[in-house]
Simulated scan of single mutants.
Amino acid sequence: MSMFSKVDIGGGLSDFWDYIREPRPHRWTAWGVALVLPVVVFYGFSEHLIPYDPPQRQIIYFENWTTNRSAAEVRADWIDRAKETTARNAKKRAEYQRFADSLGIEYDSAEADEVTRDTIGEEAAEAAKRRPEPPKRSTLAERAARGAAPSQDR
């Protein structure tokens, strides 16, 4: 038979209550320390273990456009930014196209490519679509055919 087969919770609680009710000389002092000590420890941890600095007010200056810009300058700026965005999108789309081709998935970007050609021009669209050339590396067979390199440690 196990020691914990019959647990008497009621008896334990009544013994604890009897112990608390006994008039001891430093009963209230012990209660005060038992309650205040954890509060002080938790407060100390929360305030000083991980200090919190409230955010400071910041003034951030940036270059603004002049008030006397013409509508043509504004439109030219918009077009420049649109061309940059379109070129970035074309590069990303070309990467997705190569990835889809490597997996054998159909990926049709003809409509988006047409918009890119209309926006940034034929040459820029083709340049964005071109795959960068990998660095040229010699194979083991090519290095063997050239012969062993002379040793430099003499």
Rank of each mutant, 00 (worst) to 15 (best):
D108S: 11
F42G: 13
R131K: 02
K136S: 05
A72T: 08
Y107S: 14
A125W: 01
R81D: 06
P150R: 07
L35M: 09
E22D: 03
R154S: 10
R75M: 12
S151P: 03
E84Y: 00
P54N: 10
A94H: 01
T85A: 08
I60N: 09
T85G: 09
R21G: 01
V39L: 13
E122C: 11
W78F: 14
P51A: 14
D108T: 14
P55V: 13
R69G: 11
Y96H: 09
I105P: 04
L103T: 12
M3R: 02
R24L: 04
N68K: 06
P54H: 10
P150T: 06
R88H: 04
D77G: 09
R24S: 04
S109Y: 12
H48C: 15
F62W: 08
V41D: 15
E106Q: 08
L37F: 13
D153I: 12
R130E: 02
E84F: 01
K129S: 07
N89W: 07
N68C: 13
R143C: 07
A72F: 12
A30N: 00
A141P: 00
E22Y: 00
G12L: 07
G121I: 13
G121D: 06
K129I: 14
E114R: 15
Y96A: 15
A34C: 11
L13M: 07
R117E: 13
L140Q: 05
G11I: 09
E142S: 04
L35T: 07
G10K: 01
V39P: 11
A110L: 13
E106L: 10
G12Q: 07
E84Q: 01
F16R: 00
A127V: 00
W78S: 11
D18G: 00
I59N: 12
D101W: 05
H48L: 15
E122D: 10
I79G: 05
A94F: 02
Q152S: 14
Q152I: 15
D18E: 01
Q97P: 00
T66F: 06
R137E: 09
E122R: 09
A34S: 10
R93F: 00
I59S: 14
A144Y: 03
T66N: 14
T86Y: 04
Q97M: 09
V7E: 03
R81L: 07
L35I: 07
E84N: 02
L49E: 13
A125T: 04
T116G: 09
E122A: 13
E126C: 10
V115G: 12
E133L: 05
D101Y: 05
E73G: 09
S14Y: 03
V41I: 08
F16T: 00
V74H: 08
R75F: 02
A141C: 01
G121S: 08
G32P: 02
S14T: 00
K92S: 12
I79V: 10
Q58H: 06
Y96V: 10
L140H: 06
R98P: 12
A90R: 01
R88C: 04
A94N: 03
V36Y: 10
G104C: 05
A148R: 05
N68Q: 08
E114K: 13
N89C: 04
Y52I: 15
R88T: 03
F99E: 09
A76Y: 07
A72I: 08
F4C: 11
S5A: 11
R21C: 01
F45R: 10
Q58V: 06
V33E: 04
K92G: 10
P150Y: 00
A127S: 02
V39G: 15
R81Y: 05
T85M: 07
W65N: 04
